[in-house]
Amino acid sequence: MLTPEFVQELLTDLESDRIERTISTNNTDKFAQAICAFGNDYPGHRQPGYLIVGANDDGSLSGLQVTDELLRNLAAIRSDGNVLPPPAMSVEKLVLPQGEVAVVEVQPSTVPPIRYKGRVYIRIGPRKGIANEQEERVLSERRASLLTTFDAHPVPEASLHDLTMRLFDEYRMQTIDAEVIAANHRTPEEKLASLRCFDLTAAKPTVAGVLLFGTNPRYFLPGAYVQFLKFPGPTMTDRPDDEKEISGDLRFIVETMYQKIVAHNLVASTQGEGFRDQPRPDYPEWALRELFHNAIIHRDYQSTTPVRFYWFHDRIEIQSPGGLYGEVTAATLTRRNSYRNPVLAEAMKSMDYVNRYGYGIQRAQDLLAANGNPPATFDIDDKVFLVTIHKRAA
């Protein structure tokens, strides 16, 4: 936790490149660029960076009164999906003898480069700027020594020929600023590496690269598929009405599951306002999507077990291997988020499958309640994450 004494030291250190001061309270672009630059830690300090709101360049305070709205807006930068992958940061209000400040502490990322709206920002001495191609390469190579998540690891058996570059180019257009794309002259390997889909040191695609753009991801990751079963009754003793093993690149899997959801989700008409019929599905489609996304993003891809999507007469069960991850517990499921696969989480956001980070389960519960369904229930241990969505009563 930050202390007034420590922040006072930050204010008086006018030479450090780990500190940015501003008197602006609503310049979100400036805030996000600073957070992005601190997260990238281009100088290699391996120490946090600090954005201090309410301070002049000379360290004096501006007389700002720190409001809850300002703190919420600063904290929202972490999860609004514009800074990718999401930075590790905290926001605090500090009361000093000479006034108030809001301080954002940003930890150096273990999966650089971090981008804000498709651009990589870094600290260059006391100022920030946009990284050039060589600086981005330095960050990409540094990531190899900082790997902590499985999706960023290289796949030893894979090569560039195992990826569909057309899919990557489409994804890159959604993720990288168009001017940056037009200006660069990188090799295919360097383009992939800039989005954590290729390991330049190992000269191999990463797990995320294979899952997102692989011609046959299941060959390298045997559990990378979805087992879909639709049963006519409440148990698995009946013969399925529909069954399919859905494998391929991540986008194909997601889009195919959407088709299954639409095909099997019965919609009834109920009387709404003004005596007009109002369509009411057995399950709100977007709730099913959110909970399926959660299974795809957070599953353990080292497991040979698939994601299971079982549709019964009275409920749907979505089961994924891996259990909870990081600091998330069953009690904090809707309030905290830790990413087993941060590169995949970033990709799902960039491809518009996810609106905001950390809100999927909460949003699904809200949609279920609005449709008249009971709340989804969770059965979680260290190996399996099972969510059950109950059918709306007739």
Rank of each mutant, 00 (worst) to 15 (best):
L368N: 01
R21Q: 05
Q8P: 03
R363I: 05
T256G: 03
P87D: 10
N26V: 02
A202W: 02
V7S: 07
F292G: 00
L291P: 04
L146F: 08
R363E: 10
G39T: 15
L61C: 02
V155D: 03
K230G: 08
L96M: 02
C197Q: 07
P43M: 09
F275Q: 04
R299L: 01
R239P: 14
R280W: 06
E69H: 13
P112F: 14
F168M: 07
A330C: 13
D241P: 05
T12F: 06
F252S: 12
R340G: 02
R18N: 09
F31Y: 03
T22R: 13
Q271A: 05
A224I: 08
D68G: 08
L195T: 02
P48R: 11
T110Q: 14
T28H: 01
N371S: 07
D379F: 10
A55F: 10
D13V: 11
P108R: 12
N82F: 07
V95T: 03
N56V: 03
Q319I: 15
K391E: 07
L200E: 02
Y171D: 11
S60I: 06
F252C: 10
D199V: 05
V95K: 10
V210W: 04
L367S: 01
A287D: 04
V267L: 00
I316P: 14
S62R: 13
I114V: 15
L84M: 15
G59M: 08
A88C: 12
S350Q: 12
T148G: 11
I246K: 06
R186E: 09
P188Q: 07
R280V: 09
Q362P: 00
L10G: 05
P112D: 11
T305P: 10
D241N: 10
V103R: 03
E243L: 12
M165Q: 02
R363Q: 02
E346Y: 03
S62L: 15
A393T: 00
R276V: 08
V354N: 04
L163I: 00
F309D: 04
D169G: 04
K30R: 06
R186V: 00
Q362D: 08
N73I: 12
K117P: 00
G223E: 14
T175R: 14
F150E: 13
Y359A: 00
F168C: 06
T235Q: 12
L71P: 11
P375M: 12
Q271M: 08
N132H: 10
T235A: 09
P234A: 12
K30Q: 07
A330G: 14
R336E: 13
I77N: 11
C36H: 05
